[in-house]
Design a protein around this nucleic acid. Structure first.
Lengths: 324, 324
DNA sequence: ATGAAAGCGCTAACAG
DNA sequence: CTGTTAGCGCTTTCAT
């Protein structure tokens, strides 16, 4: 069913039907009503495809995420999808994994779909291949990157201050009298590298960095267990992500260590995991949800050709619970 | 940039360019190479929009989810998105919430986008409004519903046997000598209603059902705490979803009850929450990931006009950990 | 206030 | 092996 079918039954032209559908002015009220009636009668649904072709706007955006199963990405995707939809934009969501060439190919896909703009969630997208793919395929499109720096002209960057987050966490533990404070990291994303920097800044010579833990509960468990048995004096650990810390909590408990008396633990992101943890996990709130909200805001404004700030940084918050 | 621009530079017609792009046979090798060269030179990306218009296929599918932040939905979305993409289909993901009228309006959106098919994840979609919206707007489209019954002609239903899952869990606790076994439910989805049925089937007269807990960690905590203080003899609890059970674990611990000696707890879905829990949670594995995989499989087959089974049921597995 | 006609970027049928 | 033509479903001038 097309607008021509509607037009025919209404005894008007397709142009008129189009005007009614789009609420354009300059239509006799009686015609408008007549057409609306027939539209309703057939539950007519316009082809966004055809419309997009002539309007040069698909009213779709792309959301690229390394892995939506990751709780804090799914929250971001949720917030952005809802906000965009309420302004009429559908979201194409793609999981790219952490492989830059996969990311690049997703970017090409988005280009073929003729999205009106897109959002990259996570610092993992801040790499050369992605940059190249964007300038090749999505050159002029507005986009925003959440918590990553790409330094491209058409884009906005909404950032968490990860360095400060780690610095604050470490400083807090030092203040509380902890002497040997370690940092357990998983993947080497730009975001995690900043956390390490902040941690080092606070610890200086006394920094103890465990790198390359698998990015999971088990990864945190193993890394913590190993660290704790190799170095009996560790009395504080900061983790690059909450889920690692949950594994760490269990490892410490299995080793019979008192939390937080003997050992303090701090996670990162203040995700729902942190209060699901038992004992509840203290965590650095990177305010990712607010970042996501802001991402959608900013993209929407860019889509309307409004001027936007190209860089917004959200300061972190240290949330204390039962592991410190 | 369009195929006409490419055609002009290559000194051929648009039809030829189209043939090269789509790897159609019957093109002189030298022409093919020449055209490919120019395509590459400009990083040409075809308009899926225009192509879709003529092919009557957008190569997009819709995925409707009540809330992707829910871990087991995000896993489903992940699996489906990846699988569909590897067959060339992009996924439009929409969070509908639990309001049927929201679901209906999302269905209309999908129709305007001219998706080639769609997947409904969750039994919450098994309601009259959704059914009506589908037959209005997406009448002939192939679709599959994960863990819900809609009973519509064009669809396939991939189901978990929730009744049996709850029955097995309850039976297990009875076998282990538990005397007062409660069931804590959150939302009244069809899926949860089946769980209650299975539970009742095992418990008979002795059924103790707590309904209407909020669907969250806190909800599980509150409901459990109240139940346990009102009825001191409870020695087993089954929860409609894992996250509730995590709250329950903490409530029991706060009350000083020994798990599993004094009180056994069993969750539902065997989600990642279950092994993040401390103590680790025993849970009924509804095999949702396998369901999701199957959903994508089946939809893909429907899209190819192949015959498919209209109903597939996955039997549940009881996974024992530290709370039983 | 309304219609005719052109065109968005692509594919397919038909010629040659 | 390749080009011409028509048309997918819509919007938008430009007339009237």
């Amino acid at each position: 069913m097309t607008i021509y079918d509607i037009a025919e039954e209404a005894g008007v032209s397709a142009a008129t039907v189009s005007r009614v559908i789009n609420d354009r002015p300059g239509i006799k009220e009686s015609t408008r009503i007549k057409v609306r009636e027939i539209l309703a009668k057939y539950d007519f649904s316009v082809s966004a495809q055809a419309r997009g072709l002539v309007n040069r706007s698909s009213m779709m955006i792309g959301i690229l995420i390394s892995d939506i199963r990751n709780l804090h990405y799914s929250e971001g995707a949720y917030i952005i999808e809802r906000k965009m939809l309420s302004s009429g934009y559908c979201s194409i969501i793609m999981n790219t994994g952490s492989d830059p060439s996969q990311m690049a190919s997703s970017i090409k896909s988005l280009s073929e779909r003729r999205v009106d703009g897109f959002i990259l969630i996570g610092s993992a997208f801040a790499n050369a291949l992605v940059k190249e793919a964007i300038s090749k395929y999505l050159g002029e499109l507005p986009f925003v990157i959440e918590n990553g720096r790409l330094g491209m002209p058409g884009s906005a960057e909404i950032l968490a201050d990860d360095r400060k987050g780690a610095f604050d966490a470490a400083s807090y533990l030092i203040e509380r009298g902890k002497k040997r404070i370690a940092f357990i990291n998983s993947s080497s994303t730009p975001s995690n590298m900043l956390k390490i920097e902040g941690y080092k800044q606070a610890l200086g010579e006394r920094a103890i960095i465990v790198d390359g833990a698998e990015d999971s509960y088990e990864g945190g468990y193993e890394a913590t267990r190993r660290l704790l048995s190799e170095d009996q004096d560790i009395d504080g650990i900061i983790y690059a992500v909450d889920i690692l810390a949950l594994g760490g909590v269990r490892a410490a408990l299995d080793l019979g260590l008192d939390i937080p008396g003997r050992l303090s633990l701090i996670g990162f992101d203040n995700s729902p995991y942190s209060f699901i943890s038992n004992p509840k996990l203290s965590s650095i709130d990177s305010r990712l949800n607010e970042l996501s909200e802001k991402c959608a805001d900013v993209l929407l404004r860019m889509l309307k050709k409004e001027e936007v700030e190209k860089e917004i940084v959200f300061p972190p918050l240290l949330v204390l619970r039962e592991t410190t």
